[in-house]
């Protein structure tokens, strides 16, 4: 596996995006890699589109992913995956939570929620893994594990041993650990065959 890469985390403010990016960063660091992560705080957090850039490798300079160079993306919402298309390339792998959150224009009935967005991504040559992370989280008995399920799906593709992720989860998630570990494993299984 490549020991350098760029991971984009995106979604809607309040979905647990920053925790997912943080867990992934800790796993990369634990594996001896350098990493940098860029977040935007403040106004965007009020239900707006949110993105975090995570870059890893032997030595990372810029904290920002260049357009056309995100190797992986985790999107917590369907439309947000499409919004960041310019960051992706033909070999990108994108894990998408199939939740749809209506932005204001849709909630007000001024615009429709666009259809077939994931097909549009696939048609560009991007590999899309769609999963209902909330259904999975409900199954393990804790709705707030959806973000960890998505990290699990991402983990199959990263140059990090599974045990490292488990160690990090144990260290960083003191509450509902069992449920989080289960969500991680089930998310990982979804992509296991494709890695």
């Amino acid at each position: 596996m490549e020991t350098k890469g760029n991971i984009l985390f995106c979604g809607v403010g309040g979905q647990g995006i920053l925790l997912a990016s943080e867990i992934t960063a800790f796993a990369l660091l634990e594996s001896g890699m350098d990493a940098k992560k860029s977040e935007v705080h403040g106004m965007a957090q009020r239900g707006g589109s949110v993105v975090a850039h995570l870059r890893y490798g032997k030595k990372v300079y810029s904290p920002l992913i260049e357009p056309g160079s995100a190797d992986f993306a985790i999107s917590f919402e369907i439309m947000e995956a499409a919004r960041y298309l310019p960051f992706l390339h033909k070999g990108s792998k994108v894990i998408v939570n199939t939740q749809q959150i209506a932005p204001p224009a849709v909630a007000l009935g001024k615009m429709a929620y666009p259809e077939n967005l994931l097909d549009e991504l696939s048609n560009k040559g991007v590999t899309v893994f769609a999963m209902d992370a909330f259904a999975l989280a409900r199954e393990v008995g804790e709705i707030r594990t959806a973000n960890i399920a998505l990290v699990g799906a991402l983990s199959s593709f990263l140059p990090i041993a599974e045990e490292v992720f488990i160690t990090v989860l144990k260290k960083r998630i003191p509450r509902k650990l069992e449920e989080n570990l289960q969500a991680f494993q089930q998310g990982r299984q979804i992509t296991a065959g494709a890695a």
Partner: peptide, 14 residues
Amino acid sequence: ADVFPPVELPPRPP
């Protein structure tokens, strides 16, 4: 790199 053009989407302001 070549960059995909953006998809037209409803905006998502805060």
